[in-house]
């Protein structure tokens, strides 16, 4: 007959519980935050349910939109390691999908001293004023990083997102994944909280973090990953390039993203410097 007491103790020792390694840090980081009422949190989650983000570890599956659709639903989301895609995977032909997604106007305000790696597929640089006007988005420039090397407006989403490119510096070293120091972007969307809570890969980690001045944030660290998001009910691959460490944070109706080969602490400092 099975020794139930010993079996229970052994089961307790052996059951795998993801995400526990960060518990102390996650709790301590939240100690000073204002109390959020359940109803408030639920409202945020419901709003977020309209738009979901998915971080996928080294994802290279055929028919990715179909795959993402299969993973939707809190109880069925799985982040599955796939065939490792090359870091310089061909970018989507963003300009060809929508002629209005990028502009050919010359950049009059951003410096262009460093060429943007063509594999990023960001197209020509534009001025910040032009980018803000076209996408209807706020200036995402972090004061800590200062003036970007170049500014771009790309799709998705249909309305466009602003991407700032930074060359390597002491703060943001050259990333072997993106080929630049840092990428900062802003686009209109909401982070779906529960969705990211489930997003655990073999070699990449996703954790919720507090970002100063933001409604919530997530830090994706480790293996390169790709981002997908829901744009008007259809899942779009944001880019085909693989991302390095990434900080996502929600502010109002916009999501900001910082991609750089840096620590979480540095990322939080940079994020906090976005006006």
């Amino acid at each position: 007959m099975i020794d139930l007491e010993r079996s229970l103790t052994e089961l307790a020792d052996r059951v795998q519980i993801p995400g526990g390694d960060w518990l102390v840090g996650d709790v301590v980081r939240r100690l000073g935050e204002p109390v959020k009422h359940r109803r408030q949190r639920r409202a945020i989650a419901l709003a977020g349910a309209l738009v979901a983000f998915l971080a996928i570890v080294t994802f290279a599956l055929p028919g990715p939109r179909h795959a993402v659709a299969r993973w939707l639903g809190f109880d069925s989301v799985r982040i599955e390691p796939g065939v490792t895609a090359p870091p310089t995977a061909a970018p989507p032909t963003i300009a060809s999908t929508s002629p209005t997604s990028q502009t050919t106007l010359p950049d009059t305000s951003a410096t262009t001293t460093t060429a943007v790696p063509p594999a990023l597929g960001l197209g020509p640089s534009v001025s910040m004023a032009e980018a803000m006007s076209r996408a209807g988005l706020p200036d995402p420039t972090p004061a800590l990083l200062g003036r970007p090397e170049s500014v771009h407006v790309v799709q998705p989403p249909d309305s466009g997102q602003i991407i700032l490119v930074y060359g390597p510096s002491d703060l943001v070293p050259l990333s072997s994944v993106t080929g630049v120091g840092a990428l900062v972007s802003v686009f209109p969307a909401h982070i779906e909280e529960g969705f990211f809570g489930k997003a655990l890969g073999n070699d990449a980690t996703v954790r919720s973090v507090d970002v100063a001045g933001a409604d919530g944030g997530y830090w994706i660290e480790g293996a390169p990953h790709q981002l997908f998001f829901d744009s008007g009910g259809k899942f779009e691959i944001d880019t085909l390039r693989l991302a390095t460490n990434t900080l996502l944070w929600q502010r109002g109706d916009h999501i900001y993203r910082l991609e750089a080969d840096i620590s979480l602490e540095t990322a939080l400092r940079i994020a906090a410097s976005v006006p």
């Binding site: 307790a12 519980i17 526990g20 518990l23 102390v24 809570g197």
Partner: peptide, 28 residues
């Protein structure tokens, strides 16, 4: 307080898992 959490985090995670049944949600 972080030290207290560190001291009892394993117990807390297991308790959350076995009462909710969801190992995925236990950390949250």
């Amino acid at each position: 307080f972080g030290a207290l959490v560190g001291r009892y985090q394993t117990a807390a995670l297991r308790l959350a898992a076995v009462i909710s049944g969801s190992t995925d949600d236990a950390a949250d």
